[in-house]
């Protein structure tokens, strides 16, 4: 069978589907000051699955931590229109499970184009393999 670390190089999704891969990628992102990218990505997935009772508090928490501060790494990588959309949803309590979908896609593209290829060339990954 293919060893997990070779699968990680196939696609970002293969990497994010493996606990050990996530751990290594997260360590790399933290070194680069981009750890929030990954946490935000998982928070968006978790939000979709969250219960209706938790959604209002959770939407606010995600908004405050990653989007409100325009200097934050996640906030800088999301389009202004997407940020206003989320802000509107939070303010009006229009809490659709998919309200972070677009932002998640944008962060995912950033990882795919930028931090994920860097990770595959990084010492952390090469040492692991």
């Amino acid at each position: 069978p293919t060893p997990p670390y070779l699968k990680w190089a196939e696609s970002l999704h293969s990497l994010l589907d493996d606990q050990e891969g996530i751990q290594l990628f997260r360590g790399f992102l933290r070194q680069e000051g981009c750890g929030d990218q990954l946490d935000f990505w998982f928070a968006c997935s978790g939000f979709r699955k969250s219960s209706q009772e938790k959604r209002p508090k959770l939407a606010k928490a995600i908004y405050r931590k990653y989007i409100q501060d325009s200097n934050g790494i996640v906030s800088r990588q999301i389009k202004p229109a997407t940020k206003s959309f989320i802000r509107d949803c939070v303010v009006r309590l229009h809490l659709d499970p998919a309200m972070f979908q677009q932002a998640q896609t944008e962060i995912q593209s950033t990882m795919e184009e930028n931090t994920y290829p860097l990770f595959l060339k990084s010492d952390s990954y090469l040492e692991y393999t």
């Binding site: 493996d18 996530i22 928070a43 978790g46 969250s50 938790k54 508090k57 959770l58 606010k60």
Partner: peptide, 20 residues
């Protein structure tokens, strides 16, 4: 604030793949 952080952490963990 603490409980908000806990909620976020719980949400992030819930989306991670389970151990295989």
């Amino acid at each position: 604030i603490d409980s908000e952080d806990d909620l976020l952490q719980e949400c992030i963990s819930s989306a991670m793949p389970k151990k295989k």
